[in-house]
Amino acid sequence: MRCSRAKKLFSPYIDKALTKAETELFDAHIRDCKKCRTMLEEMQAIHNTFSSMERLNAPYAFTTRVMATIDEKRTKRLSLFPVLSRLIEAAVVILVIIIGSRAGSLLGKTFAGQKTTIVSSLSLDAFESVQPNSIGGAYIAMMEGNNEK
């Protein structure tokens, strides 16, 4: 094995990711080549230092703080909900009014040429006269009597 090839295998060798055959060839080269052996030992020393490095842990009460922040955000969202629902209600009412007025103006334009028909269809003549012995007739008679006084 050449040094250039061996150098490419330093890292997978450290990670024990070489095949058995590759490992044997690599070991043979390392035994014979002092330069490569030194380089590998240096890399191995770095790898070992990583392994012996103290593991940093999350600060005290980290989970509590994360959960508190989540709760805070959730509460904020919930407290905004009534305000939002009021705003949505108001928006719906405004929308209904706008749609109503638009629809009204469109209908007005549609019936613009048929004014007479509308008027005649809405004429009071369309109503039947009130029978004097009905409740309506009695009411009208009473009102007329009041007016005469």
């Binding site: 593991r55 940093l56 842990n57 999350a58 600060p59 980290f62 989970t63 959960m67």
Partner: peptide, 10 residues
Amino acid sequence: VLAYQDRIYR
């Protein structure tokens, strides 16, 4: 969070 806090913090 409890399970992964150390790894993520690190």
